[in-house]
Amino acid sequence: MRYEFEKYRAFGALYRITHWVFAGSCIVLLFTGYYIYEPWFTTMLEIGYDDFTVANVRFMHFVAAYAFMGAVIARFYLWFFGNKQERITDALPVTKRNIKNFWGAILNYLYIKFHVPRLGHNALAGTTYLVTFLLSMVMIFSGFYLLFPESVQLQAWGGAIFGSQQTARFVHFILMFYFIFFAMVHIYIAIWNDVMFGEGVVSAIISGSKFLHLKRPKVD
């Protein structure tokens, strides 16, 4: 069977860069973060050999955290000043069109009724990104609270929100599992969409272009 597709520009360069900075920094953050919780490889057998193992892992964590924070700021900017697909209004279930799309996406993923792919994200994905953004803010803030224990302002604000360093650490650790959960689902759903609809959604985050069916109905 022969299908015809039209090529569209979906995502701009900055958007794609933030995506890959997220991907790279999250991998580093998750591995080094778990290591900071449980330093499983150590220099126990190398007494007198200074390789600064934990200090180096912490350094990588902090550098990756700053990269992650930069990407969060850029993504926040694009929510308001990006192209149509990148804007927050395009993907949050706040308009009639998006509310319909939100439920459509759920039915779609349950194999009940396939919806027509749109150029940007569906509203379910957009909502998930908003939740992830808010949790990223909690991660960033608890991270700074833990990183600068002698900053009077940070200790006052962090103390008011988290109570103590230990609670902030606990929150920071528990939220790590959300990001693992997000990464797993995100990669699976992206590949699933690519397999099901042939719109090239995986390569879209590299090339910026997506493909839509030429004879798609006028929904969306």
């Binding site: 693992i180 959960f181 797993m184």
Partner: peptide, 24 residues
């Protein structure tokens, strides 16, 4: 422990993904 809760979440997520893919 908090870590084993996290591992449970991971296992459930992996399971859910598997079920979803199998349904397809």
């Amino acid at each position: 422990t908090a870590a084993s809760v996290g591992r449970t979440v991971m296992a459930v997520t992996a399971g859910a993904i598997g079920v979803h893919a199998a349904a397809g």
